[in-house]
């Protein structure tokens, strides 16, 4: 019985839309994180001296610390962005698809 419903879910064009939208969104965010993260690691590997420089003359803040602080905040914001969309748009769409599949049974 449930396989009939699954079949119906898959035939719904909204299902394709959900999969595509969510996949693209998640992979974009993941790519941003990966590029920044490994870019930073390459900096550590090839130019560690630069990270030790202070951000301004006479300041105690080194470039490396500042960069990591910004990364922490930025990754956290990306997470927030994802959660917002997953709990709002994607969950609504999922609920709609399920509702439509159940309606056809009756």
């Amino acid at each position: 019985m449930s396989s009939v419903i699954y079949e119906r879910l898959r035939r719904n064009p909204k299902f394709d839309e959900l999969v595509q939208k969510r996949g693209r969104f998640a992979w974009t965010l993941a790519a941003i994180v990966l590029i920044i993260f490994y870019g930073f690691f390459m900096l550590i590997a090839f130019n560690p001296k630069m990270l030790g420089q202070p951000i301004a003359e006479g300041s105690m803040w080194a470039i490396g610390y500042t960069a990591e602080l910004v990364m922490f905040v930025f990754f956290w914001l990306l997470t927030l962005l994802y959660v917002r969309r997953a709990n709002g748009e994607f969950d609504d769409l999922t609920a709609q698809i399920i509702k439509e599949a159940q309606k056809e049974t009756k």
Partner: peptide
């Protein structure tokens, strides 16, 4: 500073889990 690099790397794993695996 080396330890801070470790922290960053631990932390960066989390968004990846969330985006690609959690759901």
């Amino acid at each position: 500073y080396d330890a801070y690099i470790y922290m960053m790397a631990f932390f960066a794993g989390w968004p990846i889990i969330l985006f690609l695996m959690a759901e």
